[in-house]
Design a protein around this nucleic acid. Structure first.
Length: 279
DNA sequence: ATGTCCCCGGTTCGGGGA
């Protein structure tokens, strides 16, 4: 099975590109972030014509997450337990949850398509929201794996954190002044690993960015960031047979500012490979 | 160069977000 994650930066603006990629790369399950639409607005027809079922979670023009799959999508959740909410100028527990997490079981994997809050700037209420959100995510991960240590759990998406200095090539993102690289954010990312997850792509693709700002020629200069990840439990990681970061998807007409991250999985069970066999 | 791109409201532009 082939699993991908991609912050598409508006699915309506990029549906042809997104489906073309999924078909061309034989993606079985595609987790998307920043669909920027409601389920009513989602362009289902293009995905269905290519053989994908879609579950979408979006509340308005902001955020939004979805999963497209060629295998059945089951047990959908629109937030993980304990997920904090946020609203500008609103304090306390009455803050509404945003459309940043979509959980589903696909092909025996418990999958979360995640769009971690950006943080905006150090000290901004959104920055503390980001840290709280990640802390709750680590709590949920710990609880899930405590209940079933052999769960094939995958947290995928845009984490909005560059875990190491090598993951930041954007000269505007300055340690000490910028989000994405601050010690608390990196500690929050490490806490996900401590909860029982590992970055299954980095051992196979040690270098490379997944995002380049639209501004200031960041892509031609290759001044990007590695902020999109596939984190898996040991049962998931054991099935990983390959990985790739599709840098070319940042090229051409009207690209997203992020590119797809892909893993190939060797899963137990019946042959789920839809590619033609060649002898 | 606050340098781009996307959404919305309700319209040819400003605001918000990343």
């Amino acid at each position: 099975m082939r699993l991908a994650t991609w912050n598409v930066n508006s699915i309506r603006a990029r549906v042809a590109r997104t489906v073309d990629f999924a078909v061309r790369e034989h993606i079985d399950v595609l987790a998307m972030q920043e669909i920027k639409c409601t389920p009513e607005q989602f362009p289902y027809a293009e995905f269905e014509a290519a053989g994908y079922e879609v579950v979408a979670h979006g509340l308005n023009q902001w955020n939004g997450v979805a999963i497209a799959s060629r295998v059945p999508i089951e047990d959908v959740e629109h937030a993980f337990p304990g997920m904090p909410g946020f609203a500008k100028g609103v304090e306390g527990p009455e803050q509404p949850q945003e459309a940043r997490a979509l959980g589903a079981t696909v092909g025996g994997i418990r999958l979360w398509s995640l769009y971690v809050p950006n943080g905006r700037s150090l000290g901004d209420p959104h920055y503390y929201y980001k840290l709280d959100w990640l802390s709750a995510l680590a709590e949920h991960t710990s609880a899930s794996l405590a209940e079933n240590p052999d769960l094939a759990l995958a947290l995928v998406g845009d984490f909005n954190i560059a875990p190491t200095d090598a993951d930041n090539g954007d000269p505007a993102v300055v340690p000490g002044f910028s989000t994405h690289v601050s010690p608390p954010e990196r500690e929050a990312f490490a806490a996900l690993e401590a909860a029982g997850l590992q970055d299954v792509v980095r051992p196979l693709v040690p270098t490379g960015y997944t995002y380049w700002d639209y501004k200031r020629l960041r892509f031609p200069r290759n001044e990007g960031m590695r902020i999109d990840f596939i984190l898996g439990s040991h049962a998931f990681a054991d099935a990983v047979a390959g990985a790739s970061i599709h840098r070319d998807e940042r090229k051409g007409e009207a690209p997203s500012d992020h590119v797809p991250v892909v893993v190939d999985l060797d899963l137990a069970g019946p042959d789920d490979d839809d590619r033609p066999m060649i002898f």
